[in-house]
Simulated scan of single mutants.
Amino acid sequence: MNASTTATARAARKRPLPEPGQADKFNAIQKVCAVLRVLAQRSPLRLTDIADATSLNKATALRILNSLIEEGFVSRVTGAKTYELGQEARVMAVGARRSVDIAELAQPSLLRLSERSADTALLSVRSGVEALYLARSVGSNPLQPNYLQIGSRRPLGVGAGALALLVWLPDAEIEAVIEVIVPRLAKSPRITPKFLREKIATARKAGHTVLIDAAFPGMGGVGVPVRDETGEVVAALSIGAASDRIRRREAELAEMLKKEAQVLARAMAQAPKNGRGGKVG
């Protein structure tokens, strides 16, 4: 074991594994935590390195890794016999980085957007292969997308905000997401893998997403990403409205959203470090 792996092993043993005879459930939880701690400190790692760093035998370490892979907290590196943290672990990390509730920070922006557009403004975050709607503000126009409620979930790509959370991911990750969500697209037959790839290419050039009569007939939306200080997309702002209202005002709505995304990004960067953590899912 090299010096770096030795240091990782020492860190992983910060809380030693329980002695024989302690409750099995407690043992299992500590073993899982040890594996995650090792991968968080240094990855990707081989099975042998993980077993050595956690003082687990290879069979136990492999069993834990396979379970974590099924739950999305660990992934196997393509083309290599190594492991790294998975998407669900990254979602938790994003939530931990948020020093205050992002839904609370977004309220002023959502209010301004709904007032100026007269339509519904929404804040969404990624949770696995889904978009989770955390906050909204409803405008004065009588026709609103009332099917989008706080706490609603939709597959990534199904909706302007959900698409904005997908567009700026790495290409390989986008393809993996599309492969997973295909069975969930039955309720939105216009949204096919080909359709998503075309919309992704268009959005990357424009800097915003737009969907009309795709996720829901007669309704549409415009969405933009919200980035943290490192440039990572951590949320999306979107406006949902009747399709004709989106067609007429796409550029105007996109500009409004981009300005508010910058406002929200600054608010996140300036938030006190000891504030409340935001929720992802």
Rank of each mutant, 00 (worst) to 15 (best):
residue 90 R to F: 11
residue 91 V to R: 04
residue 91 V to D: 13
residue 91 V to E: 11
residue 92 M to I: 15
residue 92 M to K: 15
residue 93 A to E: 09
residue 93 A to F: 08
residue 96 A to T: 12
residue 96 A to N: 08
residue 97 R to Y: 02
residue 98 R to A: 10
residue 98 R to H: 09
residue 98 R to F: 07
residue 99 S to G: 13
residue 101 D to P: 09
residue 101 D to T: 14
residue 103 A to H: 09
residue 105 L to E: 04
residue 105 L to I: 02
residue 106 A to F: 08
residue 107 Q to C: 06
residue 108 P to F: 09
residue 108 P to N: 07
residue 109 S to I: 00
residue 112 R to V: 14
residue 113 L to P: 14
residue 116 R to A: 14
residue 118 A to N: 11
residue 119 D to Q: 15
residue 120 T to N: 06
residue 120 T to Q: 09
residue 121 A to M: 07
residue 122 L to D: 01
residue 123 L to P: 04
residue 123 L to Y: 02
residue 124 S to V: 00
residue 124 S to H: 00
residue 126 R to C: 01
residue 127 S to F: 08
residue 127 S to D: 12
residue 128 G to K: 00
residue 129 V to N: 14
residue 130 E to N: 15
residue 131 A to N: 05
residue 131 A to H: 01
residue 132 L to E: 13
residue 133 Y to S: 01
residue 134 L to V: 03
residue 135 A to K: 03
residue 135 A to E: 15
residue 137 S to M: 05
residue 138 V to Y: 09
residue 138 V to K: 09
residue 142 P to N: 02
residue 144 Q to N: 03
residue 144 Q to F: 05
residue 147 Y to V: 11
residue 148 L to R: 07
residue 148 L to F: 10
residue 150 I to M: 12
residue 151 G to R: 04
residue 152 S to H: 13
residue 154 R to H: 10
residue 154 R to I: 07
residue 155 P to H: 04
residue 155 P to W: 02
residue 155 P to E: 03
residue 156 L to T: 02
residue 157 G to Q: 03
residue 158 V to K: 03
residue 160 A to H: 05
residue 161 G to M: 01
residue 162 A to D: 04
residue 163 L to D: 04
residue 165 L to M: 06
residue 165 L to R: 02
residue 166 L to T: 00
residue 167 V to S: 01
residue 168 W to C: 02
residue 170 P to T: 12
residue 170 P to R: 11
residue 172 A to Y: 14
residue 172 A to G: 12
residue 174 I to C: 08
residue 174 I to N: 11
residue 175 E to S: 13
